[in-house]
Amino acid sequence: MSSKWRESLLEWNRFWFTARAPIQISIVRIAIGILTGIVFWQYLMSGADWYGFSGWFDPEAGRYLIGDGVEGTGSLFRWSPLYRIPSLSPWVAIFGLLASLAMMLGLGARLSPLMAWVALGMFHHRAPVLTLLFEPLLLAVLVYLIVEPGRLVWTIKPGISSGEDRVSANLSVQLIRCHLWIWIAFSLASMLALPEWWNGEAGWLLIEDRRGWLRLPEGWQSVGQFMTHWVVAVQTALLASMLGSSCLWMGRWLLYLFALSILLFLGDWMYASTLLAMSLAVWPIDLFFSKVKK
């Protein structure tokens, strides 16, 4: 075996199978628990309005759009009970809300992210076409948290151990990190596949759509164009910084800028928050770590 090949294998081994203190994944779990809690609260408030028997998107329309009964569409694997029992929606939301609370508090170990994933999966399978930007990310992180959810964190005080190092904690962190990188890479690639992101029109279209926080008067298209290029540049630099260890510090600020761009253009604070929560697997909260002694 050549030395380069061997080095790569060792690097791979070190990347995935080194033990890590579970504190970092615990903080990710708390952040994701808060976000899933907000999502389930929203589903509790408006889920029936959307997915109920007489909702905006009733089960019949849902079944049609997943290609129910049509071969090759994979509708067989849509396991949501909300097609058959639409009135279950508030109960699923409550179930998810309790699971999120357990995640926040660090109760139930692997069971709490699993329960939250099942509940969120039910809503996702009920209407995949209505999936929002942050939902696939939350679903993915919940699966990675099942690998290692970390420990109870609220009770950790300065000077108290956060628990033994575990390989599963590292696996979980690295899975989230890789998923985040892939997501941003495909987000950028799908943008660059469209001429609007090259000629700068995309930003102006989004500003005109009034989805985000940014409002510009008529005739300020050039600012919109500049900001379009800005978003693309920030994402490119963010991806590059996540790959290189020497410029990783820059990535944190680039991610903040990316989250700001999301708020300005899309106004989707849940998407921005989910990215920030996932980024805790890449850039841990320093302040917290400074207080927790191994």
Binding site: G121, P128, V129, P136, S187, L206
Partner: peptide, 11 residues
Amino acid sequence: CWYQEMLPIEW
């Protein structure tokens, strides 16, 4: 839940 039909990944 990994498969996202019409994934709104792009803005």
